[in-house]
Structure formats: structure tokens, C-alpha cells
């Protein structure tokens, strides 16, 4: 197993690089998207919140793989072409954003109410209150769910292999099809995922501790 890794490590590592890159971008931009969706759902007018609810139910109600195929294989028929990594990132941002919107909504609603009222009572606009009072607390509370989301995303990003994005799983498959040592190659792939996830979880736990409010 070690020999396999030593022999092909440039490929494994470049695949890992793509996996981590795709996951970090998707999760971070997913947070931005999720924040807008959550705010739209809670504070938006009837139309906005209905639109958000529809988006959330469509994305949550369909498989990620199908979404990925629609974006990568479906959009070209409308003249929209993109490389596999871009297609993967876009579908992951949308998917992750929707899930994060739901996590955030819960944590925003647990803070809103009396603190938002208090913010408005000292002359803040509703938006200032959301920005300076509600969101800083909501983001802290959502870190554990965010960590979970990141773990899912790093693993789900392996789906990108079906459209040929050269992430970790794809590299593994290419190596295995060259040397036929399927067991050892996929074991190496699995171990790399495991180690990377343990590493990131440790980082996020640290951040969580650091920003905890006494």
C-alpha cells in the first residue's frame, strides 16, 4: 500500500488538491448563498420567502448527482458549456447553500426576537440589527453544523469523478485501471479522505472554541 502511494503520490496529491479546493470553495460560497437564502426566508416579504422555499425544496428533493448532470450535460444544450471542475463547484455551491440555509435559519431564529427588538430600540435599522447583532451570533452557533456540512461535502465531492473532474477519486480510478491493484489503491484513497477529514475537523473544533461566547 505504501509502495502504491510512493509510486503515484504526485497523482494522489494533485487529486487531493482538487478535492480540497472544490470543497473549500463550495462550502464557503455555499455559506454566502445560504446566508442570503436564510435571510430571505425569515425576513423577506411573501414573494421572496416563497421563492426561497421553492428553491430549497427543489434542491433538497433531488439527488446531487442529478443536479450535477443537469449542469454539466444539460446546460450545454442551452449553449452553456463549462469544464468539469467548474460544473462540480457550481452544483456543490447550490446544494451546500441550500442545506446551510436551513442550518442558519434555525440558529438565526433562536437569536432573533428580543435582541433584534433591542437593537432597533437603540436606533438600528432592522438590517443593522441583523448584521451586527443577529448574524455574528448565528454564525457562531452554526459552526458545528458547518463542520458536518464540510465533512459531507469533502466526501460528496467524489461524485465529481463521474463527470471526469480530476479530483482524488478520479485519480484513484485512473491509477487502479493502470496497475489493477484496486484494493490497495482505493484503500489509499480512503485513508487520504480520512486523514484530511480528521485534520479539518480538528481545525474547525479549534475555531469553534476560539470564538465561543462565554
Amino acid at each position: 500500500m505504501l509502495e502504491i502511494f510512493m509510486e503515484y503520490y504526485p497523482l494522489f496529491l494533485s487529486g487531493l488538491g482538487v478535492t480540497v479546493f472544490v470543497t473549500l470553495i463550495s462550502c464557503s460560497l455555499g455559506t454566502v448563498l445560504g446566508t442570503f437564502l436564510a435571510l430571505g426566508k425569515i425576513y423577506g416579504n411573501k414573494l421572496v420567502s416563497a421563492v426561497v422555499r421553492t428553491i430549497i425544496s427543489i434542491i433538497r428533493g433531488t439527488p446531487l448527482l442529478v443536479q450535477l448532470f443537469i449542469i454539466y450535460y444539460g446546460l450545454p444544450s442551452w449553449g452553456i458549456n463549462m469544464d468539469p471542475i467548474t460544473a462540480a463547484i457550481i452544483s456543490f455551491i447550490i446544494n451546500s447553500g441550500v442545506y446551510q440555509a436551513e442550518y442558519l435559519r434555525g440558529s438565526i431564529q433562536s437569536i432573533s426576537g428580543s435582541q433584534l427588538k433591542a437593537a432597533q430600540s437603540i436606533g438600528m435599522t432592522k438590517w443593522q440589527g441583523i448584521r451586527h447583532i443577529v448574524l455574528p451570533q448565528a454564525f457562531r452557533r452554526v459552526i458545528p453544523s458547518w463542520t458536518n456540512e464540510f465533512i459531507y461535502m469533502i466526501k460528496y465531492s467524489s461524485l465529481a469523478y463521474v463527470i471526469g473532474a480530476r479530483e482524488l477519486m478520479t485519480e484513484g480510478k485512473l491509477i487502479a485501471s493502470r496497475n489493477y491493484q484496486f484494493f490497495d489503491v482505493y484503500l489509499v484513497v480512503a485513508l487520504i479522505y480520512l486523514i484530511v477529514i480528521i485534520f479539518f475537523v480538528a481545525i474547525f473544533n479549534r475555531i469553534e472554541k476560539k470564538v465561543t461566547i462565554p
Binding site: I111, S114, I122, I133
Partner: peptide, 30 residues
């Protein structure tokens, strides 16, 4: 609202800010 103070039954303090921060945020942001 800036000209009328309001003291709440349930305090309405901002939990992520210190006592000092609770007072400063209205002064700096508003």
C-alpha cells in the same frame, strides 16, 4: 428611537458582546 431609551423586561442584551460592547455598539454603528 435614538432619542427614546427603552429598557426591556428580559434585558435584551446582546449576548456576543461584553457589557462595554453592548453600550458601544449603538454609539459606533448608530
Amino acid at each position: 428611537r435614538q432619542q427614546i431609551g427603552f429598557v426591556f423586561q428580559d434585558f435584551g442584551l446582546f449576548n456576543h458582546l461584553t457589557a462595554k460592547g453592548n453600550i458601544m455598539i449603538g454609539l459606533t454603528k448608530v
